[in-house]
Amino acid sequence: MKLTVNGTEVNIESEADTPLLWVLRDELDLVGTKYGCGMAQCGACTVHLAGQPIRSCVTPVSAAEGKAVETIEGQTDAAGLSAVQRAWLETDVAQCGYCQSGQIMVATALLKKNPAPTDQQIDTAMAGNVCRCGTYPRIRKAVHLAAKLIATEALV
């Protein structure tokens, strides 16, 4: 089976029913995507599949065949961190940091759809992502900052 992960085509040997999460982590060594619950309850495993945020812990790898998979590792390019990642760093969001890959992937998808979300829209979009350290207030701030960074950089 062939997958396109962060722009690179890769051959997959895992069984077809293996969740995409474990293929990324155990076969491709892309361990930035995290296991938290295994039943789409916590959002730690969020990646983009064909541009949409999905829970990779309940998505069999076969469902990703031929589609573009984007993970946290793909958010940083030659130019450096993405606007969302920079906003996260600037806001000092992370505590333990375990959930933040998933949070950043969901926030990135949100801002593509809605470039200037309100607090309430942020809350709704991110309600599926658990942070046990309680960094929620800073996540809200960071999403607003990322929206500003993206808007400003689009003008340049």
Binding site: E73, V93, A94, G97, Y98
Partner: peptide
């Protein structure tokens, strides 16, 4: 902090 926004932070599970 930087390692916790780009997925490079190494937790035990990783």
């Amino acid at each position: 902090g930087a390692a916790k926004v780009d997925g490079s932070a190494q937790f035990g599970i990783d």
